[in-house]
Amino acid sequence: MQQTITYTLLITCVLLLGSCKTHYSKVSYETENLTVSESLNSLDNEVVQLYLPYKNILEKDMNRVISVSNIEMEKDKPESILTNFLADLLIEEGKKEAILEGLDFQPEISFYNYFGILSNIPEGKITVENIFELMPFENEMVFLQLTGEQIKIFLDIVASSGGDSVGGVRFKISEGKAERILVAGKPLNLNEKYWLVTNDYVANGGSSMQVFTQRLKMINTHKKIRNVIIKHLEDKQEIGEKLTAKTDGRISYE
């Protein structure tokens, strides 16, 4: 009944003012955030048919086993099995790459930004897919030549964030700064030049690493870090080596 009156009144007002140009006024809203799950609805077969051929190509490659790991590797701060494993891998592959390319140096330090490591490495069989999950980004391996002073700034940033994925160095975090820094076992010399191997994302200032944009030199290998990791694991598998890594106190609190 009340509704009838309401509507009647409404028509009245619409008619009364009908000579004016009509427009719409927002009178209310309702909101809902729905979980996209089986209970919401079924799958649209047209969409499934659209991506199926792509899925088939993908699966064939993704399910390939490229290594076996003795342990599950997880990332953590200030250091962890996973962050150390990746940084050490990067230095090893960086050194190989430098020789391969006939470069007149060997990288001594490696860095991989913590938030660029997106999943664990599981125990047991490791597939290509695992590495894609670990590192979905299209980042490339680069070499940066930095001054000792820039290395200090870089490691101070690492220290202030509570640790990260670094190789070739050892240091203590003291009041949010990197102290007693050793590079390849020797104390950091602020007047020396060092070569760092990392990814192009941080080399261009990503992850608060503006200091890397001040580098003396940069050499881009144009090799995707993910492919470098896949290749590394495949090589190890070929010689029957299982993956293993450990924490070694490279970053610790004073």
């Binding site: 007002c13 619409v14 003012l17 009908g18 004016c20 140009k21 009509t22 427009h23 719409y24 006024s25 927002k26 009178v27 209310s28 809203y29 309702e30 909101t31 809902e32 955030n33 729905l34 979980t35 996209v36």
Partner: peptide, 18 residues
């Protein structure tokens, strides 16, 4: 795509004077 947001706005036709 884990969640889809849904917002309904209800509009009422009226005169500019209203």
């Amino acid at each position: 795509g884990l969640v889809i947001g849904k917002i309904d706005f209800v509009f009422e036709r009226s005169s500019k004077k209203k």
